[in-house]
Nucleic acid binder design. Structure first.
Length: 346
DNA sequence: AATTCGGGGTA
DNA sequence: TACCCAGAATT
């Protein structure tokens, strides 16, 4: 097929020199693919370097504590990736003798590995003819073939997967997969793609119908909900504070935070003080309450906008054990908390 | 089939 | 602002 020939030729000339392209060791490829889910290369690169430096083998990762893995993941987001990464490393190390599955079907059974990642590892490490479909592939194929099926519909995901599987170079699935993603990432970009120097100009339907900016089609997601977060930053006379591990479902699972008071509306000292006076951590003791950030911090996530205030709570002795402020940097925290800790500098 | 998982970058 | 990113898991 001419498409794959043109594409892999473009790739041979234009590909970036990335560290995970120097190996086909499944551990490193797996690590890179998990890190790069919904994450741009530029953002994921330093995390990849940090992980292979600290955990050179799957056994090193399996022997780590989950909190240490989350700490290294801190700031990258989508923390279920880190939890699943750790769980899968234990499974591979302990049940599979350190050997990753060598095919799409069995890779797909591992936690945190879906259709895309199973295809990526199977093709790159084991030359299996399994086409990847990521955001880049949706964009390239929807434009080249002029397909307006919404990419985030079940019909769309099946349609594009089938198309990619028909196009893949059966003699070099690894390079084809990486080529189409690289092409989408650095040339067939979302905005202002480099159509003027594109080797597909003559045959690209969207270019010739002038519909590049309309493709791919995506169903819009719901708007983010507003939440009001009030973090209580305890400071005791013996230089302790309180961090709590987030349990259950929802964002930041298993990361740490200052005790959180979520409220319906924005709070000030007058409204918050009586409210928290009944809190388990403050009942029957005297405390001083000071608002740290004058302006509300608006932390924007995909589905939530967190209107956040940090409240300094000065007390004598904590009602529970707490942690030494000196050791606060050991705990994995959401970047919202991490930024506060840096700026506040205790 | 929809929603929920982060955080950083771009125009 | 709105949209995007080498998506997966849950509801």
């Amino acid at each position: 097929m001419i498409f794959s020939k043109t594409l892999t030729h473009w790739y041979s000339i234009n590909k970036r020199n990335l560290p995970w392209r120097q190996t086909n060791n499944p551990y490193y490829i797996w690590l890179s693919e998990i890190i790069l889910q919904q994450t741009q290369v530029k953002q994921g690169l330093p995390y990849y370097e940090a992980f292979i430096a600290k955990y050179p083998t799957v056994f090193d990762l399996a022997n780590a504590n989950e909190s240490d893995v989350l700490k290294l993941w801190q700031g990258l987001g989508y923390y279920s990736r880190a939890r699943n990464l750790h769980a899968t490393s234990k499974h591979v190390a302990n049940e599979l003798k350190g050997e990753f599955p060598n095919n799409y079907k069995n890779l797909l059974k591992l936690k945190g590995i879906g259709d895309y990642t199973a295809s990526a590892i199977a093709s790159i490490c084991f030359n299996e003819v399994a086409a990847v479909v990521d955001g880049n592939v949706y964009r390239v194929l929807s434009r080249y073939f002029g397909i307006d099926t919404p990419i985030n519909s079940s019909k769309g995901s099946k349609e594009f997967k089938q198309l990619a599987q028909e196009l893949i170079d059966v003699n070099n699935p690894a390079d084809f997969n990486q080529a189409i993603m690289e092409f989408g990432a650095i040339q067939c970009k979302p905005k202002n793609p480099d159509c003027n120097i594109c080797p597909f100009q003559d045959s690209c339907i969207a270019f010739n119908k002038n519909t590049i900016s309309d493709l791919p089609v995506k169903i819009k997601s719901a708007k983010a909900k507003k939440k009001h977060f009030n973090f209580l930053v305890f400071i005791s006379v013996d230089q302790k504070t309180i961090l709590q591990k987030r349990q259950g479902k929802g964002i930041w699972q298993n990361l740490y935070q200052f005790p959180l008071i979520e409220t319906e509306n924005e709070m000030d000292v007058k409204t918050l003080k009586p409210l928290i006076s009944e809190h388990d951590l403050l009942k029957d003791i005297s405390f001083e309450l000071v608002q740290y950030n004058k302006d509300t911090i608006i932390h924007k996530l995909s589905h939530q906008h967190l209107y956040t205030k940090f409240w300094i709570v000065n007390v004598g002795i904590l009602k529970e054990a707490g942690i030494l402020i000196d050791e606060i940097h050991d705990y994995p925290v959401p970047i919202l908390i991490g930024n506060f800790i840096e700026r506040f500098n205790f």
